[in-house]
Design a binder for these strands. Sequence first.
DNA 1: CTGTTAGCGCATTCAA
DNA 2: TTGAATGCGCTAACAG
Lengths: 348, 348
Amino acid sequence: MNKRIRLKDVAEKAGVAVNTASTILNRRPNSWASKDTEARVFQAAKELGYRPSKTARALRSGRYHTIGLLIQDLTNPFFSTLADELESAVEERGYDLLVENCRSSLVREKHLFADLDDLEVDGSVLWLSDNEVFRKELAEMAEGRHPVVVLGNGIPEKAYPVDAVFSDFTQGLSDAVDALCSLGHKRFAFVSALAEGQADGNRPRLFQEMLAARGVPAANIDVLRTGHTVESACETFAAFLRQRPDERPTALLAMNDLSAIGAMRAAIEAGLSIPADLSVVGVDDVPLSSYLPITLSSIRQRYKKITRAAANLLISRIEAAEGLSLPPRQEVFATVYTPRESVGPTKG
Amino acid sequence: MNKRIRLKDVAEKAGVAVNTASTILNRRPNSWASKDTEARVFQAAKELGYRPSKTARALRSGRYHTIGLLIQDLTNPFFSTLADELESAVEERGYDLLVENCRSSLVREKHLFADLDDLEVDGSVLWLSDNEVFRKELAEMAEGRHPVVVLGNGIPEKAYPVDAVFSDFTQGLSDAVDALCSLGHKRFAFVSALAEGQADGNRPRLFQEMLAARGVPAANIDVLRTGHTVESACETFAAFLRQRPDERPTALLAMNDLSAIGAMRAAIEAGLSIPADLSVVGVDDVPLSSYLPITLSSIRQRYKKITRAAANLLISRIEAAEGLSLPPRQEVFATVYTPRESVGPTKG
DNA sequence: CTGTTAGCGCATTCAA
DNA sequence: TTGAATGCGCTAACAG
């Protein structure tokens, strides 16, 4: 029944004009209204329970006080943690977070990306399936008035035309490889978790090069392509184990914790014990990893740092004076290898 | 610098008036515009790359084509799965989903709840920490024009004044208890995962009654209160195990999978083996549960059914003729006990 | 079948 | 210092 309270109602109750109320309630600096009127306006607003209409404000001002986050799969703890942290980060700066969930579909990703500047947000943070694929579109966005920052693993060879925050994969990976090699591992599997139709990127190569530098020939490395769900990693690795009863790898590195967990499960079901028969390392260091029945070694991403950096880059750009066009910036955070129970020496 | 394309631009290009363009683009039924004009309008819209402003549309129509979802903790796979499924469900009906994350804070929950009808949504789905606490406010919402459906575990003794979808806990719980008892378990622990300051509700009592019916005295049941994170469940149960080196429970039931995983971890670190020394049952059946190194027995909630039912109830109410006021409806879905590796016979 | 008009609630010129 | 207009982009009455 109670109709919506408008600014007009507040103004009337306080005995002032709407714009006066507006200026006061928004604490605009150039208001030299008397202390008394200010008090009256605030009082009226409070008594009436006035809530400004975000929609009207947005329509008028073109500002939404909201930032978007595009992620691949909300169901993946990595992304939900990322969303959670980013929400905290932007909220401190007075922004809401709007999550755009690709649900592991590349075509959905295309659509969401295309609709990005149609979104009611002031800017967006993007964790794309593959930044390279969108390089051209990103360049176009940089021209437009929709600020964007891309996130990702690994530093691109050529810098992107937009703000970016990356995890530097090499440090953590290198430490993991060192650890595995010094534990005597000689045969490796690499599980790259990818969406359907997605390219491998340079990760497998990076892994191979690191192992090569430690004397492990490419022939001793099996590269498995799986989807990025637990299920698919489990199935893929199970199939692999079946068709390879001997000459099996003794160490496995998966591109994310979910895949690592899936592969671990497949190994267990195949009768292998972890880490005695197979050492497993994941990537992301999802909160759950350290609480699994067999705790999972992982290459940790710095969630807090990444999200805070992204929030800062994006919001600074949003709030920068209109004309001012900042050059693209890039920040990089190291990853850290975190050994846990899932890694141990080879039996042999 | 490409300015925003407005409806007016499309209309001009097509040589019609704005409202004509509006009626045509929105495929309103009462438009008897000539096929030819229609084609011209669509063509113009396409060529110009017209994207209607949701903000303006919302301001004008009071409809947002968005529904809100209030959850306790996005980081908890149960809630992220719920969000994911609900998003699918409402999208099929042409709505977006806006996630409101309490981040495990009851005060934040209060705020989000209070701001609910300030939100730019047509209605909301609520998974509250405790429906009873909000009973009064829910009744008020039912009066207002913000449709709401509450979700939850367990059927309330007194029906709520709003639409509701519940998981019926008793079936699954009863089956779990049966299974545990027939495996010879005599001493039990109950881990109720709660936010700080949250009441236990009737769950512990329900559990005790079920066990009593099977001849297990209350003295054989330890009720542990923990937070709802893995960490807190792990710590709480670890502390419990330390102070109770003997007379330990041989079976544990946790109010959600995350707590079950935390407790499981604590048991393992205390040197117990699962299920030989301790059987563990969770609630929710989070997707990950069946892929853990020791797969977790769980009382499954029917995510798909729950979210679809919620979407139907809410959207039907939203789209119901203005005047028509539907009575509160309630739907209930059974839970199903899903035994896995974490449950086995007692050693003794 | 099409065009004109009047707001949705707010912020922001301008006068006063 | 404050009040009266203007319009953000769109939809929905109307009247043509």
